[in-house]
Design a protein around this nucleic acid. Sequence first.
RNA 1: UGCUCUGUGGUGUAAUUGGCAACACGUCUGACUCUGGAUCAGAAAAGUUCAGGUUCGAGCCCUGACAGAGCAACCA
Length: 564
Amino acid sequence: MSEPIREESKTSVSFIEQFIQEDIRNGKNEGRIHTRFPPEPNGYLHIGHAKAICMDFGMAQKYGGKCNLRFDDTNPTKEDVEYVDSIKEDIRWLGFDWEEREFYASDYFGRLFEFAVDLIKKDLAYVDDQPAEVISQQKGTPSQPGEESPYRKRTVKENLDLFFRMNQGEFEEGSRVLRAKIDMTSPNMHMRDPIIYRIIKIPHHRTGRYWNVYPMYDFAHGQSDYFEGVTHSLCTLEFEVHRPLYDWFIDQLKTGDYKPRQIEFNRLNLTYTMMSKRKLLELVREGRVNGWDDPRMPTLCGLRRRGYTPESIRRFVDLIGYTKVEAINDVSLLEHAVREDLNTKAPRVFGVLNPLKIIISNYPKDLVENVEVINNPEDESMGSRQVPFSREVYIEQDDFMENPPAKFFRLAPGTEVRLKGAYIIKCESFSKDEVGNITEVFCTYDPATKSGGHMSDKKVKGTLHWVSARQAVDAEIRLYDRLFSHEDPAGQKDEDYRKFLNPDSLRILSGCKLEPLLASAKPLEKFQFQRVGYFCVDYDSTPEKPVFNRTVQLKDTWSKVNKA
RNA sequence: UGCUCUGUGGUGUAAUUGGCAACACGUCUGACUCUGGAUCAGAAAAGUUCAGGUUCGAGCCCUGACAGAGCAACCA
């Protein structure tokens, strides 16, 4: 027998990978492959970042290179150590390792400052004393060229003096900036004398009050790549127009042949999902969700708590691919990826969400039997377990119908069904309360039909999952639905997205009945409740009060029966 | 009105670099019933934004339109 074709060999090679292969072929940068993942520590990582992480670390892995983790911490007004820690945890959880290469743009503040001084000396940078609005006005518009600042012709000596004094804290925030001297008439706005240093007096989370000037993104990113020996700087599409500036700075800086290269790819967008860090922060602050790790959030910690596996997220990223098209990916593909993964990993267990009591009138009152049930029919190695069975059991409310339609194979007056792993029972009668709700169903069982017994091959139309009433564990189950009811909340006008919030995104069911072994389930353990869906034990679960989050629903094909 | 990028079934991606447009998700059929909402079998669905050109042959090359996105933070 030949080995099945490896998943990897079926996947096509992205345009980025083609560039990388070409660079290796040409012996560029001695054939080294070195990437980096550069988050700004101003929020939690979400599934969009997972796409970048998989690319950055994935390419290094595949081509025997390295991938650095670098925190892009050039703006102390927005950043915090809280985020640094969560980012590291989430990358590890996803399954990637930066080894000892944990870097910070702030590590390079000294060298960047020197480089800026260098540019000043070469008359390629100057201090501008104008206020922000004036500088912005002089920049022109995308269709109209800008005009030069009156300070553009300052002498090198004066620029040097002012820049040092800016850093000594002599001037107020906003009073002066350092700009690169490039071309105010360039068709590319980013080349119109970009601001490269600004005064900020808020302490930095790592360097404290040491600096009073901080480099802008464009002045830090490429250079940091260069300092670290990065060869391929992969980022998202919106940085495409920054590339000439990226190259300009590195050309001023580089001394040998080595040069990093920026390549852009498309961002991950998901239907019904909002990925803007700023807006996610708003949802947290306004209390519309219960924190960054609320299972409805698209954050990695939210998905983790919801029961998504790192494998399923990596698989999803692999499925959607990397291109330059602004795509909106269907969440159903992500859901498919989790089902696919969990289907093989999550043991099947009995859990009844909406219990209906069955009383088996001819079953001995005090008898408790243990019946054996397979843990995963797709994987024998997962073994089996014992489940207690007794005279009173719960089944799912919608597994019983008083007036069943055609093709309803479950329990109804006069019909027989098998209780999975146990006996065939027959419905004899049922009782209702004043308002007409069915309260109890009375059945009889046939002792000869026990699973594995001599009459066990008797045919019945349906099989139901159940939980023994006396031994059942009462649990709380949280059903999560999509946070937004609009397919593209992120595409809406800034403040509009709130009106697409789905009021039913969280439903809490209490009094759910589970089989006893689930009382000792550990947080983050995953199960498939037979016929109901995939569930994950929540962090705040206790043996006294187990709490389960629904990871994802099974595909609902049984509803066809109800429609008929 | 400028510059940069992008247009392939409903969605996301392929197409050995010029050779019968393929795969996945989704949708719809059907089979299977000691639960597996799994699995299996099948179907519908694009002629590649449009118009020219080169070629025996174009999704791919050329020209010109059209459409969408990004760019005017002392954010990243």
